[in-house]
Every structure is written in C-alpha cells, then in structure tokens.
Amino acid sequence: MKPAPFEYFVPTSVEEAVELLARHGDDAKVLAGGQSLVPMMNFRLAQPAVLIDINRIVELGYIREGDSSIAIGAMTRQRVVETSPMVRDKCAILSEALANVGHQAIRNRGTMGGTLAHGDPAAEVATVLLTLGGSVTVAGPQGKRELSPEELLAGPYAAGISSDELIVEINFPILAANETHGFLEMSRRHGDFALAGVAAVLRMGEGNICERARVALCGVAPTPVRATEVENQLTGKRLDASTIQAAAELASRAVDCEDEYHASREYRTHLCQVYVRRTIQLALERWGNN
C-alpha cells in the first residue's frame, strides 16, 4: 500500500521541531526511525496530514554516562545503544532488552525516543524504563519538562505526551553493584512482538534476601505495567524456588488483555507467571555467579 498524501518538514533543531508541532498539533506525526510509523502510514492506518522528519536534528544523538544514570538522546539508534560497551557495563538490562526489539535491521533505524513516543504495549525499552524508574524529557511550546515512566505510560500509545511535545532525552538509572537483573520474553518467532515479556531488577542483600524488587511486564496490558503484587511478595524475602513461585503467581493480577488470535487471555496470563518466575530465577542465578 502507498501512504496518503502528507506535507513534509525537515527541521534541523529541537526549537524548529517544537514550533512545527505547536503549529500542526493533532494533524502531525513525528518521523524518527519510521519503523513503526511508516508501515502504519503505508497501510493507511495512520494518515497524518503533516510529517515532521527529525532525522536531521543531530543534537539528539548521544549517549552520556552520568554519576547515577545514562542520558540518551532521543534520536540515538537502538542498535548503537545495544552495542555500546558502556551501556552493557552499567545497565546491562537495557542491552539485553534491546536484543529483543524486532530484528537488527529494524534496530539500525529505530530510535530510543521513537519507541517510547509510539508507546506499543509490548515495547521492551519502555518496560525497562519502567523497571529502572528512569525519566523522559520532552520539549514543548512551554519549554522542557520531565516525565516519570508512569506519567509517560498514563495510557496506551504514550498518552502521557501531548501532541505538541517532542521527546528529547531518556534517562536510564545505572544498576548498582548490589542489583541484579533479568529480561526475558516469549514470542512466536524471533523478533516478533512479545506475547509476554518481563524485566526485573532486584536489589539483593546478604543470604539472597531481596531488599527491593522492581518487576515490569510487557505485552499483557494496554501499556507496560509494574507487577506490584509480585514486587511486594519478593521484597524482604529470601529468594528460593518456592518464594519465587509464590510471587510469580501474583503476576496474573497485572494482566489486562483479551483473547486474541495468537494467544488466549488465559494462556497469556499463565505465560506471564512462567516468565516472571524464569526471569527472577535468571536474575538470582546471575547474582549467585557474581
């Protein structure tokens, strides 16, 4: 299919882009990597009257290591982040999650800001952000503001951002020495949207006690969600097979989906529980190996 006609702008600065968004608002869509938007436009499912191509905004491509977090410019390609030795060293869960985003060819073009702005329910990057508790900086006509992951994910498809705002930076907290992590997802084929995915970061104490657990799920609700019942069940406990199993079962409380062609609601819920268990186990094994 061919897209419907659209007006096309190529700003070269954030200011210019924001000005265009303010002018066109609801009629405009931002083109970053295009890996989600362009297929939707070619299907004519999305028919923005205006396309604002931000690929020439060079200032938005960077990865900066800070004291407690990594700042990534919105236009940084996913593949660049995935292969960054610094990210692998300081925030390995992000590198691992990125390996599950589509295929390498898609990650060559897809951007860190783009996936968050698109807001797919099964998006891995948003799920990791939610788990780590990072933040997103957006620029709008009123200036810049920071959003927590929860604010960003107020509703499906990045409802937390308004149509005249542009994501400019994402902040991922660096994992501490006493934090372990895991990321696993189940999909029909390599690179497909997750039927269920789990990101977990556990702060561990002596004797395998979990001091703090943050567990987020993707693909099982309208947005990535925190599995708070699971987290509460793990916190303060010694992690072993039975505590993990008991906690994993509570993952069903966070599931909010319908029967679909590829997976029934029941199957997805069960998958979620299995994958929460496996991801926590993976994190625990990783902790044991260190």
């Binding site: 029909r188 084929r189 062609y261």
Partner: peptide
C-alpha cells in the same frame, strides 16, 4: 489464513500471518 466467525480475515500482514524465519 485465519478468519473470525464473521469472515473478517485476521492475518492480513506478516505481523499475524507467520512465515517462519531462518531462526525457526
């Protein structure tokens, strides 16, 4: 090539019509 009970086709793109890749 799947349909719902109203004859609406559910597998209208390669997102849902699953051709195995070399990985499978």
């Amino acid at each position: 090539t799947a349909y719902d009970e109203n004859g609406q086709i559910l597998t209208g793109s390669f997102m849902d019509y699953l051709v195995p890749t070399s990985m499978e």
